[in-house]
């Protein structure tokens, strides 16, 4: 079982010596092999949720557990894909992908095999010895996803992974991620502010309120996707044309608009 369970999680931030609440009453389970997206206005604490699952931050009260074990520190069982890619610029593509395996004592032969597999899976073959700065943003994020996938993690934590990409690249990456999720299903916690992206990718979408962040509503996308068999479409624009997709998207948009702060207008 590789689920992510938030129990009564609250998180306070300290600024200028004053504490103020950033997250409140977060109770949420990301089920085994589920793709769950969190959307919300900026500053609502959605990234903080992901970072608490990663062990990069900790709740002020409540607990976060992955696979039944309370999260106390970061580790390769909870692979993170960062918005800024966070590749090591002095390492080649293959070295970046293999670094986690090296650190965890995976023998050279097995390492080479696993890196080669994931290179192929992410359409990165031929770029093994390139350095990150020689690649486009989309290719760099492919490497970052490959680096996470190669660890064979319990859960994948993706923090606005396509936020820094241009619109076309973004669409390609979204389609790739869907393909990847079919070939190799994982428990995924996906943070985004793009509503279409969330509806297209996720089984469930969590909409958060503005600060202090709470869960406003959880929308079940998977049942709609199955009922309307979105999976018959190859391309994202065909899925986005479906009345059921439009309906969900508009619903989430309305929820988010209610959460807009007065000064956001």
């Amino acid at each position: 079982m590789s689920d992510i369970v938030f129990t009564n999680v609250a998180r306070n931030f300290r600024r200028d010596g004053k504490e103020f609440p950033a997250l409140r009453d977060i109770n949420l389970s990301v089920r085994d092999k589920e793709f769950l997206a969190i959307v919300g206005p900026s500053g609502c604490g959605k990234t903080t949720c992901l970072r608490m699952a990663a062990g990069l931050e900790f709740p002020t009260s409540g607990t976060v557990a992955v696979g039944g074990v309370r999260v106390t520190r970061p580790g390769p069982d909870r692979a993170v894909v960062f918005q800024q890619f966070a590749l090591f610029p002095w390492k080649t593509v293959a070295e970046n992908i293999g670094f986690g395996l090296v650190a965890n004592g995976v023998a050279a032969a097995e390492r080479a095999r696993r890196v080669a597999d994931v290179l192929k899976l992410m359409n990165l073959a031929g770029y093994e010895s390139a350095f990150p700065h020689q690649l486009s943003g989309g290719m760099q994020q492919r490497v970052a996803i490959a680096r996470a996938y190669v660890l064979d993690p319990q859960v994948l934590l993706m923090d606005e992974p396509f936020g820094a990409l241009d619109a076309q690249t973004r669409v390609v990456m979204q389609e790739e991620l869907v393909r990847l999720a079919r070939v190799n299903p994982r428990t995924v916690l996906f943070i985004t502010h793009a509503v279409e992206e969330a509806v297209y990718l996720a089984d469930r979408v969590v909409v958060m309120s503005r600060r202090p962040g709470t869960i406003r509503e959880i929308i079940d996308v998977a049942s709609v996707r199955a009922a309307d068999s979105w999976d018959r479409f190859e391309k994202i624009e065909d899925v986005m044309d479906q009345a059921s997709f439009v309906h969900l998207r508009t619903h989430i948009w309305r929820l988010l608009r209610e959460q807009q702060a007065p000064d956001d207008h």
């Binding site: 990663a54 990069l56 390769p76 960062f82 800024q84 966070a86 090591f88 650190a103 965890n104």
Partner: peptide, 13 residues
């Protein structure tokens, strides 16, 4: 960059 250090810790380095 803090995210480089976080990435390394996440990888178990």
């Amino acid at each position: 960059e803090p995210f480089l250090i976080e990435a390394a810790r996440m990888l178990g380095v």
